[in-house]
Simulated assay, not measured.
Amino acid sequence: MRSVISRWPATLLAALVLLAVMPGTASATAAGNGNTLTGDADLVVVMKAERELYLYRDGLIIAQYPIALGLAPVGTKRMRGDDKTPIGAYTLDWRNPNSDFHRSIHISYPNAADRARAAALGVPPGRNIMIHGQPDYDDRPRTGDWTHGCIAVSNAAIDQIWAHVPDGTPIHIYP
């Protein structure tokens, strides 16, 4: 079985993992690019390989947004300065309305396991991993992965996420 699974595309495996975690998603429909939202999300899911962020409510996708990641997007964050976006289960725990990146919402990285892994390596784990918009200090268009570990979206997307994702919402980040 291992040889069959190893040939599956990463996106299919990630989708199967998501379905295993979120049993109600098989019948979910994405809001698409219009993302007309009412009510709050109760879960945020990031699929790094697909470069997509999903908002869920009651097991259904209510919105999705394209994302950019850290400059070294493969794998999980291990230490400060590695330009990786973490993988794992976290919480969106506070927000910055005066961010240099339009608006930003903090991801609770590093958690206890992240700190222990970094300590075992003798390195600092890093901090201030956020979901954020585009830089306010520079209006050049951004393409590809360009952050230092954060999850970047358009300014319109961060405005919607800001309005519909309360502090305390869980975020699951998948490879």
Rank of each mutant, 00 (worst) to 15 (best):
M1E: 13
R2P: 10
R7W: 08
A10G: 14
L16W: 06
L16E: 08
L16K: 06
V17R: 13
M22F: 13
P23V: 00
P23F: 02
G24M: 15
A26I: 15
T29D: 10
A31M: 10
G39E: 04
G39S: 05
D42W: 08
V45N: 02
M47E: 15
K48Y: 09
A49N: 15
E50Y: 11
R51E: 05
Y54A: 06
Y56K: 05
G59E: 09
A63T: 08
Q64T: 10
G70R: 02
L71W: 07
T76D: 09
R80C: 10
D82N: 05
D83Q: 15
K84R: 14
T85E: 11
P86A: 08
G88R: 00
G88N: 01
L92A: 01
W94M: 12
R95C: 08
P97V: 09
P97T: 07
S99N: 06
D100E: 15
D100V: 13
H102W: 13
I105F: 01
I105N: 02
I107A: 05
I107M: 08
I107N: 06
S108W: 08
Y109R: 01
Y109V: 10
P110A: 06
P110N: 07
N111V: 07
A112F: 12
A112Q: 13
R117D: 15
A118R: 06
A118V: 07
A120S: 12
L121Q: 13
G122M: 07
P125E: 07
P125K: 07
D139L: 12
R140T: 15
R142D: 13
G144Y: 02
G144Q: 05
W146A: 06
H148E: 14
C150Y: 00
V153M: 01
S154L: 06
A156D: 14
A157C: 02
W162F: 02
W162T: 03
A163C: 02
P166F: 00
G168M: 01
I173V: 00
I173M: 00
